[in-house]
């Protein structure tokens, strides 16, 4: 029997950190971090600026290496991989950067097509895929623009489209909504929910905005009878289990669990309460 039970496959971690330590010069950035992100799960990482949130994402991509501990992607230990070996692993990971990090010298089309051009695919296939991705983030009109002509939110969405090319199994979001107006932030959260529920993508979502957590941990996307994507709120009959929240403080995980547990923890832990309510 070679068929994998879908339930078992979901239990298999997409990302796993085992006791990871990281120092910048003498400053301890990560202090024994261990966690897993299951297949199809979204892990929201909360924490103050400079608390090591973005560092975790860079470690997943192998852009930096930990001082000790192991990091596994899809069960594969990537900790000691060299740069050329990491290139293969990065093929299955998409990354959305804080400010989009689009290549200034390339048009929106070429930015999104970057990965496909590098693979040397024929232009017809590339164009079809690029248009599909831009339609997904609702930016097909901007295809010929240069990044400097785009607004902050549009840059972020192009960044998402670029990260999703090639259908990565893991997508990492580094504060994708920071500095955006609420409707645009909402659009981006909807994209994340769509990826999680309709494409079964595992993701890490770094943020410090509470509204995002509300959207991500209480809504889910389904396709209705007309074939449209609609968002529904969790309620009596359905409770979301594929989104977890993790809070970092000075390089340590001080909370990990569902949003309901987070609200409960906020009543007892003053640090978490201050984080959620600002006082």
């Amino acid at each position: 029997m070679s068929q994998v039970n879908p339930f078992e496959e979901r239990m298999f971690p997409a990302i796993e950190f085992r006791d990871v330590y990281l120092y910048y010069d003498d400053k301890k950035v990560l202090d024994g971090i261990s966690f897993t992100v299951r297949k199809g799960e979204t892990k929201i990482i909360l924490g103050r600026s400079g608390g090591g949130k973005s560092t975790i994402i860079k470690l997943v991509l192998g852009l930096i290496k930990p001082d000790s501990g192991r990091i596994l992607i899809d069960g594969e230990d990537i900790t000691d991989y060299t740069e050329p070996e990491m290139m293969r692993v990065r093929q299955k990971i998409g990354m959305v950067f804080q400010e989009g990090a689009l290549f200034d010298s390339l048009s929106v089309y070429d930015n999104v097509a970057y990965k496909l051009h590098e693979q040397g695919l024929p232009e017809e296939i590339v164009e079809e895929e690029v248009r599909k991705m831009l339609r997904f983030v609702d930016l097909e009109d901007a295809i010929d623009k240069m990044p400097s002509q785009l607004s902050g939110g549009m840059r972020r969405r192009v960044g998402i489209a670029r990260a999703l090319v090639g259908h990565p199994e893991i997508v990492l979001f580094d504060e994708p909504t920071a500095g955006l107006d609420p409707p645009t932030a909402r659009t981006i959260c909807e994209l994340v929910v769509k990826l999680r529920d309709l494409e079964n993508v595992s993701s890490i979502f770094v943020t410090h905005e509470m509204q995002n957590i509300e959207y991500l941990s209480s809504e889910y996307a389904v396709i209705n009878e007309k074939g449209e994507v609609v968002f529904e709120k969790e309620g009596e009959k359905l409770c979301l289990i594929n989104t977890e929240i993790m809070i970092l403080r000075e390089g340590k995980i001080i909370f990990s669990g569902k949003d309901e547990q987070l609200k409960k923890a906020a009543t007892t832990d003053p640090y978490i309460r201050r984080f959620l309510h600002g006082r």
């Binding site: 852009l63 740069e83 050329p84 998409g94 689009l102 200034d104 590098e118 670029r162």
Partner: peptide
């Protein structure tokens, strides 16, 4: 240098291209 500070180098590595 500008590509480094605007994270374009990281983005390039993340997309599987070796900046070197």
């Amino acid at each position: 240098g500008s590509m480094v500070v605007s994270q374009q180098i990281d983005a390039m590595r993340a997309l599987g291209t070796d900046p070197v």
